[in-house]
Amino acid sequence: MTSEPTAVIHDIGYRHYEGARLGRGSAALALAVNSLRGVFGLGRTARAKIMPFLLATIMLLPAVVSIAVMALLKQDGLPYPAYAVTMQAVLAIFLAAQSPYLVAPDLRFRVLPLYFSRPVTVVDYIGAKLAALAVAMFLLIAVPLTLLFAGELLVDRPGPPHTSQYLAAMGGAVVYAVLLAAIGIALASLTPRRGLGVASVIAFYLFTSAVSAVFFGVLLSIGRETAAKWAMLINPFFLVDAVQVALFGTDPSNGEGYPPGLWACLIVPVVIAVAVAGILLRYRKAASS
């Protein structure tokens, strides 16, 4: 009797793939998830995680301090709608540091033709990148707000919780996220170099906030108070704050107030549309080259 071999190594050669082939939507979703993870440095080197996690931690600090103030001093903490405006420098740095990561390497290392040689269109690609950055910015604002709200409920201060303020701030966070993501991607996609992208986004923030402050001061000193309030809207953070004020009736966080009416609610969609149109033009050109 011959004994059968118990284990054999087969060279199975090339096998065809018979499994599922998902559509454009799944590919775009996979790209968005992959990009979102990348924004926070997940699946990247340890060095890539330092900046996003450091900034995310800094975003949490005011919430922690506010909870401590509520618990120990029995006083109100930082108001919810003012959170993003107070932390605008941190948000701007995060936007500047991370938006070039999303678009610059694909341009610089010419990975784009590989995407577009697949069932992924320019719109899918841009949509996925914008969504990833918008979700990241939203998390950056919404997580501290939610922590603060949970803290307020746990501390159980006398009087009703500021639920409507919290919800208004969360609504504002959505607007912040979309507006900042559109601006970030639009500026970062102009250059294939990541360093230049970082510089251009941070320069945009510094420029708009400086111009808005200078105009505000000058216009106020010559007694043009209404015009001065308009100048505030040049800073994108105050622009969204004005939307919050107009839509949800929160207190203005700039200490001065904004022009009356729904103007800010009109300006924000226009800015987003201009930014997205710019991105589309940029990538239509890149796709056919």
């Binding site: 499994g19 082939r21 998902l22 996979a30 995407y115 697949r118 069932p119």
Partner: peptide, 8 residues
Amino acid sequence: MAQMSGLP
């Protein structure tokens, strides 16, 4: 890239 081609 496989995911971009629609593979789970």
